[in-house]
Design a protein around this nucleic acid. Structure first.
Lengths: 151, 151
DNA sequence: GCATCTTTGCAATTTTATTGCATGCTGGAC
DNA sequence: GTCCAGCATGCAATAAAATTGCAAAGATGC
């Protein structure tokens, strides 16, 4: 993982649709060397995957929300069980166990409030292990970056 | 945006590194038709970009945190100012204005607690418009999906 | 039902990725 | 400092993939 690898990763994190020749030129390598480095980074698992990022507005998922969740029964197996339940939901894009006043935090992508309502019923009502939850609807997003900063 | 477009988008959201011929076969189209659809989806902005998703652990950003922020002065211009400040930070991967008990929420990717400490000083200390903030360190991530669910 | 505009598949062409191989560089042992 | 082993590199050839023109099929509006 030298300087060139980091440059390549940064390029790929911004736009992975460019040709190998372009990126080779960008980092000052021959196409073959560049390709072999990228392949190595993939096989080593540094690059997890290459994906298309959609425009949420044009894909019909306009609403975004963050939900913090306090569980009734805390501790590992209970938290895990709740997270697994949440992870199965399409609208849940991220599900984390966290430190602090709450036990878990969910990021949602919703079509409308109807979907939110239905989701709440499935995840937070009676039978589940949820004591309380707080929903924050996203008003405006100033930054939304998939790239991980490399030193 | 018919069934085939949605299938293509779903394929691309999971793995955009496959060949056009493979995806054409997957959705039952000829390579040329498939390519033209994908190009159209890109030009229409439905596909925003194609990016590499790195493995955070192997890229040296092991810590993840969610920070909720209550501002001293609420309202549009103040919120915007804070978000813009936060967005300029490398470690901030997401910055949202939200409804609820707090005004903003930040998602962080950190190398270590030292970086967290430095970030807090820059974003939350004295001169800034922050009244209080609550940090939730991510213990475990059960789901972390970039794909947007398409009906 | 007809004319028009769009999408499709095929085949040819162009571009891009991939590989073998010889060379050069790097770091460690002595 | 010198030698050696192990990699990374660039070049050129090859294989694979993307891209385009064109004619036919399909959808849309009147």
């Amino acid at each position: 993982m030298d300087r060139i690898d980091r440059e390549l990763l940064n390029l790929l994190q911004r736009d992975a649709s460019r040709t190998n020749a372009y990126m080779a030129d960008e980092v000052g390598l021959s196409p073959s060397s560049c390709l072999r480095r990228i392949r190595r980074l993939r096989q080593a698992g540094v690059i997890d995957r290459i994906v298309a990022i959609l425009n949420p507005a044009k894909a019909g998922r306009r609403l975004r929300a963050v939900v913090t969740v306090e569980l009734r029964l805390h501790g590992e197996p209970n938290t895990r069980q709740f997270l697994d339940l949440a992870a199965r939901e399409e609208a849940v894009t991220q599900a984390h166990a966290v430190t602090g006043e709450v036990d878990a935090i969910l990021m949602l992508r919703l079509r409308d409030m109807e979907e939110y309502d239905a989701l709440c019923h499935r995840l937070f009502q009676n039978r589940t292990n949820v004591a309380r939850y707080w929903t924050m609807m996203v008003i405006r997003t100033a930054k939304d970056e998939t790239a991980i900063p490399l030193e």
